[in-house]
């Protein structure tokens, strides 16, 4: 159990490094309003073991977001978005709960659950996170069109990357 947590911690650190030092540089600016960003770090929240207390998930989300924000020089934006994603995680899990419930010690990944379930769960979580991020970034719902377009653009590539990462690292 303890080793389990250490693995998660180290994986999280690695994901953060990837996000901050690699993916930060491949932000594609299409025009003044439309931007494609690649989000890998939501995987940290996605991959937390199922039965982790919600308070811990929230705290992990908050501080992970804070670190990303420090790197991106956008204090508060990723923090707010990832905290929200962490908050939503419990409800999403309830929503997509497979027949027979969750295995207490497992974390969401390809090996513990059916591929279709995992894809669905990841898609919902990333969509929530990216939507939250661009909403908070726009900071006013009058930009709803911009929010939606940016969300869809970034969703595709982020989803692919996270699935790829999960497959490669068996995480």
């Amino acid at each position: 159990m303890n080793r389990f947590n250490v693995t998660h911690f180290l994986s999280g650190i690695f994901i953060l490094f990837c996000q901050i030092f690699l993916l930060k540089n491949i932000q594609v600016v299409i025009s003044e309003t439309f931007v494609i960003s690649v989000f890998l770090y939501p995987l940290i929240i996605i991959a937390i073991p199922i039965k982790t207390p919600r308070a811990i998930v929230l705290t992990v989300g908050f501080f992970t977001g804070l670190l990303v924000d420090v790197a991106y020089d956008s204090l508060g934006l990723h923090t707010a978005a990832l905290t929200f994603t962490a908050f939503a995680r419990g409800y999403v899990l309830q929503m997509v709960e497979p027949r027979g419930g969750y295995n207490t010690d497992s974390a969401p990944n390809f090996s513990s659950y059916k591929t279709s379930w995992y894809l669905l769960f990841v898609a919902i979580m990333i969509l929530i996170h990216i939507l939250a991020y661009f909403s908070i970034d726009a900071f006013a719902f009058v930009y709803i069109a911009k929010i939606l377009v940016n969300t869809l653009l970034s969703f595709g590539i982020s989803f692919l990357l996270i699935i790829l990462y999960s497959m490669v690292f068996k995480y």
Binding site: A55, G76, L77
Partner: peptide
């Protein structure tokens, strides 16, 4: 409790956003 914690974290994030980001500060 997790809802309170969530609101607490979001409040901090909101204060950070409004204080350290020019665009959001102006909108706010």
């Amino acid at each position: 409790g997790h809802i309170l914690l969530f609101l607490f974290y979001e409040m901090i994030a909101f204060v950070l956003i409004v204080n350290y980001n020019v665009k959001q500060k102006e909108i706010f």
